[in-house]
Computed example of a mutant assay.
Amino acid sequence: MTFSVAVAGASGYAGGEVLRLLAAHPDYEIKTVTAHSNAGQLLGDVQSHLRSLAHLRLVETTSENLTGHDVVFFALPHGASGEISSQLGSDTLAIDCGADHRLERESDWVAFYGGEYYGSWTYGVPELPVTAGRQRDRLVGTKRIAAPGCNASTVALSLAPGIAAGVIESSDIVTVLAVGPSGAGKNPRVNLLASEILGSANPYAVGGTHRHIPEIKQALRTAGATDDLSVSFTPVLVPMSRGILATSTARIRPGVSAEEVRSVWEAAYEGEPFVQVFPEGRFPRTADTLGANTCLMGVAVDEAAGRVVIVAALDNLVKGTAGAAVQSANIALGLPETSGLNTDGVAP
């Protein structure tokens, strides 16, 4: 069976990446692509790298244009997909790559985003350890999926194994991320100009203000974090077009050995095609994940500090967004989870 697909927000970075992955997928047929200011143009004029889809014409992002498809991917700014998606039939599989349906608590939405709250959908991070199994179990057969925030899923995948196994404390988590500017979307901004970021590393959303913080906490609570959960999160913009390198640390519980700590992460992701732990002493680069649906990790124990250090790398546009969306859609539809996705990056 081939599933008909519409992609809303096809002219942006996330929408373009969803289309790139779907173009080679054997079970999806792209029927409709939508945009706002670019409506009326050919897709090839705004996403010139998508040569196999260049003939498609962008139409307005309306519920009328999205209705009637088996699958609809939303790649819109936060606050834009909630109302439109609510008008789709319950038999349509909807996947939101934006933030509108990620947060379970309305208070978190109001505090970090604002505007109308449209409720939460099934979280689209299949490998995430939860208190009873994996998040993928909750994706089977669902019709509404919230793809993750790229920073949030990187940190959650990094720390959830230790939380779920009870080997780290949740009261003292610190994470610092080097991130590429494509995560901020395609709209031009002064702070994202090449002249502003080349040759520089620029911290932003410092002091607990980043919108992915409640999403990280939500995922770690799902993995079993206690009420004393505390996450210090600092992103740093660096001059690479795509990629995230997250260095996360947490205090190890008394009496837990370094060998036990490492075995927890290895067991958590054993057999996972897209989340892989490097051998001891090795750590990933963002370049290792370019274009691939992989999250690669290195795990170390700082015995002097009594902390575990996890270094995780992924492509924010693939595993961080579009790849997670396609992977989750595959699971929901009963397709092979790996279909249309790859683990090989592009080098150099």
Rank of each mutant, 00 (worst) to 15 (best):
D91G: 11
S85T: 03
P214H: 05
E169G: 11
V190I: 08
R102A: 03
S37K: 10
G16D: 11
L296I: 11
S171Y: 01
D70M: 08
D137C: 08
A165V: 01
Y113T: 14
N38E: 11
A225E: 09
R20N: 12
A201V: 15
E260C: 02
S171W: 00
V46W: 07
I310E: 04
V130F: 01
R251H: 07
S4L: 00
A304S: 12
C150Q: 10
I252L: 08
I168M: 04
W109G: 11
I173Q: 02
A14D: 01
A268V: 01
V318T: 15
P77L: 01
V18R: 10
A165T: 02
R51E: 14
R285S: 13
G114L: 12
K143T: 15
P203C: 08
A194S: 15
E127L: 03
G68N: 08
W109S: 07
I216V: 15
R144H: 08
R102G: 06
S52M: 05
L314G: 06
A164W: 01
G207K: 09
P279L: 02
L159N: 05
C295R: 00
I213E: 04
H101N: 09
E266H: 09
Y204P: 01
L159M: 14
P284D: 12
V299P: 02
S90D: 13
E280W: 01
V167F: 02
R282V: 04
H55W: 06
T32V: 14
L245M: 13
L53F: 05
S257R: 06
A132W: 03
A8T: 14
L335A: 05
L333F: 07
T32S: 07
G281Q: 00
I95Y: 03
V179Y: 02
G208Y: 03
S170K: 01
L58D: 05
N187W: 07
A146G: 08
L42F: 09
S241A: 13
K319P: 00
I244L: 08
L317Q: 14
L22M: 04
T286F: 00
T226I: 02
G44I: 02
P284H: 05
I30T: 11
V174Q: 09
L76G: 04
R189F: 03
